[in-house]
Design a protein around this nucleic acid. Structure first.
Length: 322
DNA sequence: GGGTTTTTCCGCCACC
DNA sequence: CTGGTGGCGGAAAAAC
């Protein structure tokens, strides 16, 4: 598509403004750098308007026709989204998908995508409290309860309302690279990437475990010192725990083991370097804390499904026209 | 790519 | 008895 990438957000009654606001903040604001291809946002609703939580009414600039020729269609969740969406909305989503649009849902918006049948046999995420209901209604969908979002190529689903933020940043990363996504994240004053499970949010988010502070403290220390070799023993020492206890607490509050988390951090830190610097792969490997380039390539390939050098080439040769 | 060494993981048990 | 902690050792993974 020449020119601007069209993002259509499809609202439903009882929208809170929060999720649609996320979409607006990321896709509705100007590009982080002048002159680059960016997004055009269309806010759409069946009938040209929706009710909002608290009794407000929102009139949108587009009806379902706003989905026509969109490159991305985003459906934010609302309470009771699990009610069957209208036939017209389902048809519009199907048509958009057939026309090449990627379909995106936030939180319970996944139910609307599920109603199109396009998710059958594929992996999807939704809010943890509604995962069971989604499985019951659409048994062929593989509901992943352990992630913030699932990117299945042309269909991308996210777990909770705030996970929609992670997902939208992920889309920017996919379209324009990690460096641009990081700049958008910085503008919004949020961390550029959150890892892993919603598991950490499921159990007792209210009763904060004092051990979590020591874990996050160790994580912060590691993030700031990625360039140096870091052992699990050193992390445990920073958390003032035994290695065994540290591993236990880390997996509980993070959903992944310490070393896996660390490797992800290192790979993520390498992305902007690959995109914007001319440093060799070896140099970058060292800068993000891998002891050898071989190890770096190994983990990069496992997580990104490409090699560091082809990743670099992809973002050098104007992939952002997507 | 395959083999060796080192590190991490995790079940188990003992302890508080 | 419950619920958390540390240490040990074999299995698995990572680094070389």
């Amino acid at each position: 598509v020449a020119g601007s990438h069209v993002v259509a957000v499809l609202l439903h009654d009882d929208t809170s403004g929060f999720t649609s606001g996320i979409v607006g903040e990321i896709f509705g604001r100007p590009a982080p750098a002048a002159g680059m291809p960016w997004y055009t946002l269309r806010v759409c609703a069946e009938g040209g308007g929706v009710t909002m939580i608290g009794g407000a009414r929102l009139r949108t600039g587009f009806d379902l026709d706003g989905l026509v020729n969109a490159d991305t269609v985003i459906v934010p969740g609302v309470p009771h989204m699990s009610d069957e969406p209208s036939a017209a909305a389902v048809a519009a989503l199907r048509t958009a998908h057939r026309g090449g649009a990627r379909l995106v849902s936030i939180c319970s918006g996944t139910f609307a995508l599920a109603a199109t049948g396009l998710l059958d046999g594929r992996r999807a995420a939704t809010h943890w409290a509604e995962a069971a209901e989604l499985s019951r209604r659409h048994p062929s969908i593989i509901v992943d309860q352990d992630v913030l979002y699932v990117d299945d190529g042309d269909i991308i689903t996210s777990a909770g309302q705030a996970a929609g933020l992670d997902l939208c940043l992920h889309l920017v990363r996919r379209d324009h690279g990690a460096d641009v996504a990081n700049r958008v994240a910085r503008r919004m004053v949020i961390p550029p990437h959150r890892d892993g499970g919603q598991a950490q949010f499921i159990e007792a988010p209210v009763n904060a475990d004092p051990a979590d502070d020591r874990i996050t403290g160790a994580m912060a220390w590691a993030s700031g010192n990625l360039a140096t070799p870091i052992t699990v023993a050193a992390l445990a020492a920073h958390a003032r725990m035994s290695v065994r206890g540290f591993q236990r607490h880390f997996t509980r509050c993070t959903g992944s083991s310490p070393i896996r988390w660390l490797i992800r951090q290192r790979v993520h830190a390498s992305l902007p370097l690959l995109e914007t610097s001319d440093a060799s792969v070896e140099t970058i490997a060292a800068r993000v804390g891998f002891e050898s380039a071989v190890t770096f390539r190994h983990h990069f390939a496992r997580l990104m499904r490409t090699s560091p050098s082809t990743y670099r080439k992809t973002f050098r040769s104007g992939r952002s026209a997507l």
